[in-house]
Design a protein around this nucleic acid. Sequence first.
DNA 1: TCTGGGGTCCTAGGACCC
DNA 2: TCTGGGGTCCTAGGACCC
Length: 419
Amino acid sequence: MHALIDINNFYASCERVFNPVLRNQPVVVLSNNDGCIIARSSEAKALGIKMGAAYFEHEKFLKENNVAVYSSNYPLYADMSDRMVKILNEITDDITIYSIDEVFADLSSHHPSDLEDIAHEIKDKLLKYIGLPVSVGVAPTKTLAKVANYYAKRYKKFSNVLVFKDDETIKEALLLIDVGEVWGIGRQFKKFLKGNGIKSALDLRDANETFIRKHMTVTGLRTVKELKGYSCISVDSIREDRKNITHSRTFKTAITNITELKKATATFTVRVSEKLRFQKSAANIIGVFIETSRFNNKKYKYKNSKVINLPVPSDNTFELIKYAVKALETIYVNGFQYKKAGVMLFGLQDSANMQYSIFDTYDRPKYKNALTVLDKINIKMGRDTVRYAIQGHNTKISIQERLSPRYTTSWNQIIDVKT
DNA sequence: TCTGGGGTCCTAGGACCC
DNA sequence: TCTGGGGTCCTAGGACCC
């Protein structure tokens, strides 16, 4: 049996833990640049505020309804997530950290008659120890555990815990849930399935497997199998090493010249390199992208990206910045209002076993020592204490005007935030 | 004026190999 | 008139997740 433990309205709940005044007040949390609403307390949801809504369009409404508004405070959320994981590890082994606010636990080693008690223990301890409200769904597969969690969270009578014990309960639950709510069914497939008469999760479970395989690939077929009770989806923990690393930002004010764009690109490269060294990997490929606002008229729209294969896999910020700037220069076109840019690393491999080139002109051991020192200083003294000249001095790219304090961490933990 | 960020997996099709 | 068979690797694009 699998359990899905999911913190209710995670970001909003985190803000509440340290600010009890908010307990009975609607709360929303904004995306980077205070752009969109990305988390809502249940009271905020009840007011009809939609996920992903633009903040500037709702600012007045939020004020009128006494909604507390926060910029996203990732160091705080990441730390609360860590605490949740620690508590869960004490209750049960074999957990997989699926996202910042969701954990799967394999409860196969527990006796079936104990599952309900364990689920309640998880819920009670997380609330008591770290003040976070969670929902727990337990079922024979992860996909069904998601369904159980869906009901646990939404219907008061379950008090946030639901264990699927028999096939009849599962059948009823699947009948009453829209196919689009099933884990793995997104907007496109929902539309496709409904167009073919598959409306509920039960319809999907009982759909023709050849048909599903043909139109939804093996991924869709796995979902069907999981709904039938055959466990066949495995998930990697987000604590595993990443296969790609990206850092990108939307600019509050558009950038219109390459000098400023170079500064931003360099800073993004610094960020991805830090993450790269943190997981002890090296990259084979670096990519840069730039784009104008996606809300612009077609006429004023431009987006482009360039990837460069590195001669030797690298985790060296000095070197990576050079390639990033080179890539930027090949795609930059004068005359556009750039609203977003980013740097990506691909082809990551273990930096301990790197294959060097005999034509390599870089003194890698020397750089390695320098970077180790730089990382140490910046971890100890704060991000960008020592920076690269090309970054310039205004490295504050995004704006967060409504940030709560980092109640539980110092800035030196920023570097390993994964969301 | 203003609209987030970071990931994964799968497939089809092309290039190339013998 | 007729034109093999089997494989790998890479990439772009599309779907999904939080």
